[in-house]
Simulated scan of single mutants.
Amino acid sequence: MTNLITGIIGLALVMLFLGFMVVWVKAIPLIVIVVGVMTLAVIDFVQSLRAPNGARR
């Protein structure tokens, strides 16, 4: 349960920070990179929630 809460808070803060950066710097390559990085972060978060406690991938 702790991993879920801290993960959601962490992802939300990173998305907020990167969202502000994308709004300020409107460059297509930056937007593509931010979307790719956030997609990978969410995938990793979901996979870490599904893994048994203490298990390594």
Score class of each variant (00 low, 15 high):
Gly7Ala: 06
Gly7Arg: 00
Gly7Phe: 03
Gly7Lys: 01
Gly7Tyr: 01
Ile8Ser: 05
Ile8Gln: 04
Ile8Thr: 03
Ile8Ala: 10
Ile8Tyr: 07
Ile9Phe: 11
Ile9Trp: 06
Ile9His: 06
Ile9Cys: 11
Gly10Asn: 07
Gly10His: 02
Gly10Tyr: 08
Leu11His: 05
Leu11Cys: 03
Leu11Ala: 11
Leu11Glu: 01
Leu11Ser: 02
Ala12Leu: 10
Leu13Asn: 13
Leu13Tyr: 07
Leu13Ala: 15
Leu13Arg: 08
Val14Lys: 06
Val14Pro: 02
Val14Phe: 10
Val14Asp: 01
Met15Gly: 14
Met15Glu: 12
Leu16Pro: 04
Leu16Ile: 13
Phe17Ala: 05
Leu18Lys: 11
Leu18Tyr: 07
Leu18Val: 06
Gly19Glu: 11
Gly19Asp: 10
Phe20Met: 13
Phe20Asp: 08
Met21Arg: 14
Met21Phe: 09
Met21Lys: 12
Val22Trp: 13
Val22Thr: 10
Val22Met: 14
Val23Leu: 15
Val23Gln: 13
Val23Arg: 15
Val23Ile: 12
Val23His: 11
Trp24Cys: 08
Val25Ala: 10
Val25Met: 15
Lys26Thr: 14
Lys26Pro: 11
Lys26Asp: 11
Lys26Glu: 14
Ala27Phe: 14
Ala27Thr: 14
Ile28His: 06
Pro29Ser: 09
Leu30Gln: 04
Leu30Phe: 08
Ile33Tyr: 12
Ile33His: 08
Ile33Leu: 13
Val34Ala: 09
Val34Trp: 00
Val34Tyr: 02
Val35Arg: 06
Val35Leu: 00
Val35Asp: 04
Val35Ile: 14
Val35Gly: 04
Val35Trp: 00
Gly36His: 05
Gly36Phe: 03
Val37Trp: 03
Val37Ile: 11
Val37Met: 11
Val37Cys: 05
Met38Tyr: 04
Met38Gly: 01
Met38Glu: 09
Thr39Tyr: 04
Thr39Ile: 11
Leu40Glu: 05
Leu40Gln: 09
Leu40Arg: 03
Ala41Phe: 03
Ala41Trp: 00
Val42Pro: 01
Val42Thr: 06
Val42Tyr: 06
Ile43Asn: 02
Ile43Gly: 01
Ile43Met: 09
Ile43Ala: 08
Ile43Cys: 00
Asp44Lys: 09
Phe45Tyr: 13
Phe45Trp: 05
Val46Glu: 01
Val46Lys: 02
Gln47Trp: 08
